[in-house]
């Protein structure tokens, strides 16, 4: 079966979604990612959706689930590169995706994750 590749980048995992996913593929990605996060003890997950031209309620829920599950494992997820037309449509659809961190691109997403890691270390030090 085809799979969405998950790439390890230092402490982070990067997923770049390039294809129009059918629902089973999206579910498989959700499972794979959680397993990888637990196994690699990753510090953060970046999901690049700049090539996605549709995010419907199903994909939206998947992104939300990934964020919630990785958070439960002590890791943050950042969704990066959402296209304006997709963002406008999601808002109209009524999806809020409140639990998800977002960034304009992969670089900014990594900076955000690093800043959050630093913040949580500082908190723990106190």
């Amino acid at each position: 079966m085809e799979k969405i590749p998950i790439i390890k980048m230092g402490d982070f995992l990067l997923v770049s979604i390039q294809v129009d996913m059918h629902d089973r593929l999206a579910m498989a990605l959700q499972d794979d990612l959680t397993i990888r996060v637990a196994k690699e003890r990753s510090k953060g997950v970046l999901i690049d959706i700049s090539s996605l031209d549709v995010v419907d309620s199903f994909i939206g829920r998947m992104l939300d689930n990934i964020a919630a599950m990785t958070r439960a494992l002590g890791t943050e997820t950042v969704v990066v590169g959402m296209q304006p037309a997709v963002a406008i449509t999601i808002v109209e659809l009524g999806l809020s995706l409140e639990n998800i961190y977002t960034a304009l691109n992969v670089d900014k997403g990594m900076a955000l994750l690093e800043a959050r890691m630093k913040a949580s270390v500082d908190e723990n030090d106190e």
Binding site: D20, Q83, P84, I88, T89, E92
Partner: peptide
């Protein structure tokens, strides 16, 4: 279904936002 409707919206020269809205509706 998403792909075919996307192609149709392109051939009718829908704006990108309008394309995305209709294709998302189709998906739902």
């Amino acid at each position: 279904a998403r792909k075919i409707v996307r192609d149709w919206t392109i051939s009718l020269k829908f704006s990108l936002v309008d394309q995305t809205k209709l294709v998302t509706a189709v998906s739902e």
